[in-house]
Design a binder for these strands. Structure first.
Lengths: 351, 351
DNA sequence: GCCAGGATTGTGACCGGTCACACAGGGGCC
DNA sequence: GGCCCCTGTGTGACCGGTCACAATCCTGGC
């Protein structure tokens, strides 16, 4: 790796509203009125001020504005990950919406669900003075949600809640439970006797709340099929691979629903190595529809989730809260999850 | 998608240093000294102040600190993308390093290389008062680099420069030219007569500066092999797929070096559909070593680039610049690029 | 015992905005 | 013609820190 140095800057102090005021021959308060679009400024005055602003290249200091007004046009995203597709896509949605509203977006990674660390991260994020968006798809995120002081302005992207959340919870989700049900149904319709489930880690220790697993169970019980023990996987392809090797040994396994596409990727590889053909011997379904999933061999049947839409909705909700007084705009709706059938699923093998 | 509402906050104003001062019976300036670790505060006084801080739950306002000191402990990342692996990984590295240094990190996406848009993005980013990190792997990023005023505190992650950069350029890169040379050499060593190249878009219109292509040319000319016309690809699997279909038709093509793993993914699929086996008929090499590449069928031979290391180095450089006066810490060095040979490359087919 | 000088601490201005309120001028109404 | 209200503008405090400098307290050296 290479690095090159840098030289020192020698710029002058940027223009403040008082500089502009002097240049335009008005008071600083009038300049403030102009930049904030206050109605009662005479057009002639406004023009003089605007000319001065242009001439001096004035830009309102976001810092000073935040300090004086108490409102920081800022949103900080707390997440445990920025590289995985779902997280990155949600971040993308948030950033888009924030940029459109002239909000700055900050990002802070939660490295673990350790209480002290998470609490400190929350404090640090709150220090910016803006709102918070939590990506609470996993332990660290959920922990942050639990630990956040009640009065912090925050919105969370969460898994589908097991039961209707308490009124007033600023939560956003897509119905992945229904989606899991649909995906499982798809496999059952193809004649598979049962469907195995390789789950992502559940966020709540007690309730085993993973709603993807719940949807899978729904479909199975609706079809009158006993649910095999779900397999606790992780998030990574390596986890899927490890689980896949075990699954591959069991000849009764003909259909696997994976908690995400990365797990499915690992499963696919394990099956291939074990000589079990996909979809002829085993069908595999993923979750998320990551960008590469359509190009795999075989192309992965998966559930497309609109993470970016969720991200945009999170921002919209937070924005409405922070900018109270503005009418709450109808939330931009994310697309409903949708099963994308590709090549990794097929009819159950004949016995 | 579902969204639930939220309730209003009713918190009180957080404690300021003057509140702490009153509680501790000292002046606000003494409190300031304590929180900044100034040496000349009597231990007894320090303890009183610290007790008051703890009791009031005082946290220094980042906003006020930034305004008063003129230094915002903030770094804003300007990038055209947050989802692609290389970009996301670089961001991860930046965030890690920034968090360790108690810097906040902002993110701003450059949607195009349109001059006005990029200039406005730069201004907005500068408004935060902190430093800037540019991910200049593509047009929008490079455009931002060109357009940034000379006195902005910025560091850029760039492609390997074609020639030594002007002294003082705050640039960080890994030597992907050498890596491309190595990858091409690997294919040549396997007996392939020549190696085709599917390039990512080059950032500089005029020089065709993509150094991955240059490294590929280096290796070819060193081996005395004429370089076939490189193919202008894009960034996405779909682009690789399109190019791959054309490549598949030409029986002379037995080795392809792709500008990134996504392109390689598309090429792999196109070859498979065309009935050309990898690596038996055609060898394929990628670039980046994205997390899923090891699990593809076949597992992709690729060049591992330490994006996170580059990101950390960017931050270190910026930090040293902003915090001038501190000794410049030795830059954390990113790992050198390394060819990871997996399953997608093999001996040239016999004719 | 006196004084220089470092250690400690306090005072008030300032960073660049916003906010609350005062004040001048002009038009409508009775 | 006087009063009231609205429009347009200015004044000074304030947000929560930092900075420059002044003031006070100690301590050692002679």
């Amino acid at each position: 790796m290479s690095v090159t140095g840098h030289t020192r800057s020698g710029g002058r102090r940027p223009a403040s509203i008082r500089d502009v005021a002097t240049a335009a021959g008005v008071s600083h308060q009038t300049v403030s009125r102009v930049i904030n679009g206050h109605p009662s400024v005479r057009p002639a005055t406004r023009e003089r001020v605007e000319a001065a602003i242009a001439q001096l290249g004035f830009r309102r200091s976001a810092t000073a504005h935040a300090l004086a007004s108490g409102r920081a046009r800022t949103v900080t995203v707390l997440t445990s990950n920025t590289v995985h597709y779902g997280y990155a896509a949600a971040l993308k949605g948030i950033e888009e919406a924030a940029r459109a509203a002239s909000f700055a977006v900050g990002i802070h990674v939660l490295e673990s669900d350790d209480e002290r660390l998470v609490a400190e991260a929350l404090r640090r994020a709150a220090d910016t003075g803006g709102g918070l968006i939590l990506i609470a798809y996993d332990r660290p995120g959920v922990r942050a949600l639990e630990l956040a002081p009640a009065d912090t302005p925050l919105v969370a992207a969460v898994e589908t809640p097991a039961e209707p959340p308490p009124a007033g919870s600023p939560w956003v989700w897509t119905d992945d439970r229904a989606a899991a049900r649909e995906a499982t149904g798809h496999l059952l319709d193809l004649g598979h006797r049962t469907v195995h489930h390789l789950a992502i880690p559940s966020t709540t220790r007690t309730s085993g709340g993973a709603q993807r697993a719940a949807g899978w169970r729904d479909a199975l019980s609706r079809a009158g099929v006993p649910a095999p023990e779900p397999i606790e996987g992780g998030w990574e392809p390596a986890d899927g691979y490890a689980a896949g090797r075990r699954l591959a040994r069991d000849p009764d396994v003909t259909a696997v629903l994976c908690g995400n596409d990365d797990l499915a990727l690992g499963v696919l590889r394990a099956l291939r190595e074990a000589g079990r053909a996909v979809p002829d011997d085993v069908s595999v379904v993923g979750f998320d529809d990551a960008p590469h999933s359509a190009y795999l061999a075989p192309a992965l049947t998966t559930v497309r989730l609109d993470f970016a839409g969720v991200g945009r909705a999170c921002f919209a909700l937070l924005h409405a809260r922070v900018e109270q007084g503005e009418p709450i705009a109808p939330h931009p709706v994310a697309e409903a999850p949708r099963l994308i059938v590709r090549e990794s699923t097929g009819p159950a093998p004949r016995r």
